[in-house]
Nucleic acid binder design. Sequence first.
RNA 1: GGCCGGGUAGCUCAGUCGGCAGAGCACGCGCCUGAAAAGCGCGGGGUCACCGGAUCGACGCCGGUCCCGGCCA
Length: 304
Amino acid sequence: MVGPTASGKSELALEAARKLPDIELVSMDSMQIYRGMDIGTAKPTRAEQAASHLHLVDVVDPWETFSVKRFQHAARAAVHDIEARGKRALLVGGTGLYVQSVIDDLRFPGEDLELRRSLEAEAAEPEGLHAAYERLQRLDPTAAARIDSGNTRRIVRALEVIELTGKPFSSFGPGLRELGSATVFPVQLIGLAFPASVLNARIETRVHEMIDTGLVDEVEGLRSEPRGWSRTARQAIGYKEVDAFLGGDEPTLESAIDRVIKRTRSFARRQRAWFARDGRIEWFEVGKNSGETRSRILASWGAV
RNA sequence: GGCCGGGUAGCUCAGUCGGCAGAGCACGCGCCUGAAAAGCGCGGGGUCACCGGAUCGACGCCGGUCCCGGCCA
């Protein structure tokens, strides 16, 4: 079950797990992975987690870095484990790449952080980035055609893979768009959709609730952690903006909150765009008659 | 009341010597294979406060009006 943030996925999934004892939940969320990042990631409560057999929440500490590759292993293991016990796994979450890494045949070539750092240093300057892109065009024209010339992140990664493996980056997969429709195990894909205006209002409400329930304190705690706060964890929306406020880079809490709301809206838009291109997803409009729609979904899974 | 600074995109502001109106953010659309709540591309949007003048040509120069901020009285 996929959909943009604040579309009510978790709530519906928790209800499913409550009504259908053979269902266990597997979170498809890149930020609920981190322990101690609870409020800003809208994590279910401990009680809800236990009652729903929620997997892949709180698996690493905030000072650890995490990756799609690790997620892929852990999530597939969780699904196999659930199914081996004769139960059904309900995968729920809004991190598009993570979902596809689990259900589709994505194979991630290795990584070399040392090499990556030197490539990043090269690409930091505009001329260096230009040179890097030209090298990519020469070494792997197919990959270069799929990557924008200004996208440092992806140019660096492509060159890293080429130098590390001696093979073209594009030889490791056809690109997400060209992946076949067959998943690696049987999956039914459904999406929850809201009209943008309704979703935006829900996002605004939710952000204010996060502040009211102690997001600032939570961020303060993470900031004072001596073991640090990893590159991957600290980019969570809500956290980085409040962190900027506490660090003095954002003038007021109000302006930080405003940024959180805007970043979340923009994130929801990107989620919509990501999932929209996946023709396998069956969409449910939950803006109106949401109760009825939700009941219909639950009934299709066997709820009375 | 006097002096000075300002009024340009939804917001914050650039705009050289008078020559087709710009950026960042926001908004809309799209891309995406080991950071993905990340990263990136494209697009719509303007009575340049208003009125008049000189000029082939004004956001820019001249005169006036209105509004905002500061200093002086």
